[in-house]
Design a protein around this nucleic acid. Structure first.
Length: 399
RNA sequence: GGACAGGUGGCUGAGCGGUCAAAAGCAGCAGGCUGUAAACCUGCCGGCCCUUGCGGUCUACGGAGGUUCGAAUCCUCCCCUGUCCA
């Protein structure tokens, strides 16, 4: 198959499970461990694509559920898949909508067949199955797509967790079968370019066959229950995917539990496949996750928190709206070299927030993403240079 | 000069005899946010005190008096603002 997906581990840390790798996709190579900014609706809120490139973003995440509802995956497909549609020529990962099972609790109902959703936009009913999630994602044309899973809320009873694990397993099997069928029928090639006339109108809708074949990742569930994590991992591994994700973490459980489960579960996954810790986390979570063998992360935290006025700095969290920054001429983070910190003061950005000027959220987002990406670059550099353990203990000690 | 209307907490603005330290909105202050129903949500928002409570106390609804067990609410006078008429 012309799927260019390949993962290679470049360097292992001697004292931890940390590793640095390269994830090759049709749209470029991603250096791992990596952080993927969340661009749910085919946009990282507040950021233009060229800003993301400037920040050094290597891969974005987008969402099946949201793009299915609006603008509709057929529109995206006809506009050249996500890469063409949003003009992002770099790697993209799409989430399956499994998280919405949990976050849209009250608007969603899980059955054996799939998930009944009521659109959060207009209340219209929709039914998402593991197969449809694959179809939608194939139309969106990312580089990596996820199987539909059931992400349960915390705390959950053993029965609930177990049921979710089993269902996630059955759905993964169906997704894989459907995915195989899709690939056999020839979906996917290298190009996702769109033909346009001088007016920018699309001349030919892009046929399926011109979209790249995404790789499919499976998701391990099981909450904080190690036995269930093992059951889930065995099941997902048996089906076989090109990468493996840990889902259902950082949903309210204690941090020590998260790290514990991550360490336990990551160790069950094959060395030669990327491991993706879904939806996590704080800068600290990234470091602790890497130390336990995680290669990929995504989280809304840097972007959402930025829009809500809190920024990450080398000295911890800073709520820029606070009165104490009204006359502060320092940058958000004096130790930061991002474009925002090189140019703007806390006083100015605070003013933008109080005045509800959109630039406030934009600048804070750019800074936070820089902070996250830089955190990752530092981690990767430490692994490659053999200094990860030192880096880890230094950061843990608060420098 | 006359006739109306009105003066309420930082602002706008309800209340029109007790349950009013006074609705609501805004502003302000603080907190939360982990595969984005989030540029959102929550809490606080007169002072002081404490055993932090449908707690105590003081000061407050332009000013000064008065009626009443009790007044932001009723009466009298005064001051101020707006509109209209001279």
């Amino acid at each position: 198959m012309q799927n260019e997906f390949r993962f290679e581990v470049v360097s292992h840390d001697a004292g931890t499970h940390a590793r640095a790798g390269l994830l090759h996709t049709a749209h470029g190579t991603i250096e791992t461990p990596c952080f993927m900014p969340v661009g749910t609706a085919a946009t990282v809120k507040g950021m233009a694509q060229d800003q993301l490139e400037q920040l050094g973003v290597q891969i974005l995440l987008a969402n099946t559920y949201h793009l299915f509802l609006r603008p509709g995956h057929e529109v995206v497909r006809q506009m050249g898949g996500l890469h063409g549609f949003m003009s992002w020529p770099h790697p993209i990962l799409t989430d399956s909508g499994g998280y919405q099972v949990m976050s849209l609790k009250g608007l969603s109902r899980v059955t054996e067949d799939g998930v009944h959703f009521r659109s959060h936009l207009d209340g219209s009913p929709h039914f998402l199955t593991p197969e449809l999630a694959v179809d939608i994602q194939a139309a969106l044309g990312p580089d990596i797509m996820m199987t539909l899973d059931e992400c349960v809320q915390y705390p959950a009873s053993h029965e609930t967790l177990q049921r979710a694990v089993k269902l996630t397993g059955r759905w993964a099997r169906r997704a894989k079968a459907h995915y195989n069928k899709l690939r056999e029928s020839g979906v996917g090639s290298r190009e996702s370019r769109v033909e346009k006339n001088e007016d920018g109108e699309v001349l030919h809708p892009t046929p399926y066959s011109q979209l790249p074949t995404p790789s499919l990742f499976g998701i391990v569930q099981g909450g904080t229950d190690k036995a269930l994590r093992q059951v889930s991992a065995e099941e997902i591994l048996e089906i076989g995917f090109e990468g493996y994700a840990l889902g259902g973490l950082s949903v309210g459980e204690a941090k020590s539990e998260t790290y514990d489960v991550v360490e336990y579960t990551a160790a069950l996954l094959p060395q030669d496949r990327p491991r993706y810790l879904m939806g996590v986390g704080t800068p600290e979570d990234l470091l602790e996750g890497v130390a336990r063998g995680i290669d990929m992360f995504d989280c809304v935290m840097p972007t959402r928190n930025a829009r809500n006025g809190s920024v990450f700095t080398s000295e911890g969290k800073l709520v820029i709206k606070n009165a104490r920054y009204a006359r502060d001429g320092a940058p958000l983070d004096p130790a930061c070299e991002c474009l925002v910190c090189r140019r703007y003061t806390r006083a100015y950005i605070r003013h933008l927030f109080l005045a509800r000027e959109m630039l406030g959220g934009i600048l804070a987002t750019a800074h936070n993403l820089h902070f996250y990406l830089d955190t990752m670059r530092e981690i990767r550099h430490a692994i490659l240079s053999g200094g990860f353990e030192r880096h880890l203990s230094r950061v843990r000690a608060g420098q």
